[in-house]
Design a protein around this nucleic acid. Structure first.
Lengths: 244, 244
DNA sequence: AAGCTCAGGATCGTATACAATCCTTGTGCA
DNA sequence: TGCACAAGGATTGTATACGATCCTGAGCTT
């Protein structure tokens, strides 16, 4: 089912929550990134703990970690909610990405090895199959993973760490403000990126990435949205730890 | 007693630890930024809690928050230590700053109001008096605060949030790798920045900031350093909340 | 009927207690 | 003397318990 990616702990880990909390973090993050949990939803500490068979202490730690990456907003004495990025924040996030990611793409194109290329191609394959299977949430999540994979090729750990929450928040923004339900343009842009990478053309990669980010930004319909608040328990029905 | 500073929560707060932990965070952060606690030092949970008159739960939460901003590194079953940025990381951090901060400076120069200008001038005054009083740690900390103040003028919350840990980590890097104990060049660069801001010249501000960051980067002597490990108790001897 | 008050429940913040892990150190043996 | 190993202490990971705060809704007053 979800043999998507191994733990892969030691990659960019400098502030990972301890033990069990990490697993809860990953599960919740994936659920949010795949839009199985929507912005605005309440994340009750007891409920989270019980859902994953852990104590409230651990659940709380996981929620705080998610808050630090911006996926969750904690209000004192009120609890944790999936963040609902404001329109203003949506603009800021994509402006930040428009600044950072083209540079990352340039560095990646310089450092790109043959193995890296095949790895990125595999990412794109995954995206395609997700799109074909109709799982839009997973497709979007994998699209974010593609951007992160590029950052890791660029081998700039600090910028990679910076990009991670930006991409996560982009997922929230798209959940709230995306204009049409198609993500085909994504696929196309990623193909264009691959071409630049394959040619080891840093400037082309930089330019393609820049226009890709701008496209995403302009694909948003930035008007106020009401909050949707589904229930939690159904999302993790039965498989809190199903993933060898 | 503790009319130190009002909460002031809502500024850049989207993941602040709750209640008491926030105060501990602030105190520890300041101590680290002012080099009263040096990289590599162990931060025992019991000790931190007792030092600030709080339970281990709160101390732990504060340490985890600091870990998320990169000031502290937590190793499983071993505890929290003040981070010791590697040489590699030092390069990465300053490359990231060289990418982000010139853009910030440009935006700040555009958005600069007269009030902003006087506010920044006050920052520089503080720096000067700290330098003259011989308190190098505080001077360095204020220098970082100046950069953050610029970011807030630029009114780009996301990039500001990104800059915060970068500047904090820069402080650690300087503690470990700074070549000479003088920071006068800092002051000079900041004056040059002010001139560009006063003239509302975005491009000048961008260029000055860029060379400022590059100067900082090249002022580092990036060779391996041994870890210094002083004791904690002395640092906070009796004044957990003394700070006008 | 509308609005206010206040009790009850629910949820979070914090403290404490127990379990698991790691590090130290002292001892026994080669 | 040097090393292997085990017992003890120290420290972190996790669970539970208690207090504080907030939200809800019933009942009373106007």
């Amino acid at each position: 089912m979800a043999l998507i990616d191994q733990p892969q702990d030691q990659q960019g880990a400098f502030s990972l929550p301890p033990g069990r909390a990490l697993e809860i973090c990953r599960q919740l993050e994936m659920a949010i990134l795949e839009h199985r949990i929507l912005p605005g939803m309440k994340l009750n500490e007891d409920e989270v703990g019980e859902t994953f068979g852990a104590s409230r202490t651990v659940a709380r730690s996981a929620l705080q970690a998610l808050a630090h990456s911006g996926l969750v907003t904690i209000e004192r004495n009120r609890g944790a909610f999936v963040s609902r990025p404001s329109i203003r924040e949506a603009h800021d996030v994509f402006e930040a990405r428009a600044l950072i990611e083209p540079r990352i793409a340039r560095m990646a194109a310089r450092a790109m090895s043959d193995d890296d290329l095949t790895m990125l191609r595999a990412h794109i394959e995954n995206e395609h199959s997700a799109v074909h299977s109709g799982n839009k949430g997973q497709a979007l999540s994998l699209s974010g993973a593609f951007h992160l994979a590029i950052a890791e090729v660029a081998n700039q750990q600090v910028l990679t760490q910076i990009m991670r929450p930006l991409i996560s928040r982009s997922s929230l923004i798209i959940a709230l403000y995306w204009r049409r339900p198609d993500t085909t343009c994504e696929s196309h842009s990623h193909e264009a990126l691959m071409k630049a990478f394959a040619a080891r053309d840093p400037f082309a990669a930089e330019e393609v990435m820049k226009s890709h980010i701008v496209d995403l930004h302009s694909g948003l319909d930035l008007v106020e949205r009401p909050a949707a608040e589904p229930t939690l328990a159904a999302v993790f029905s039965g498989d809190p730890g199903s993933k060898t």
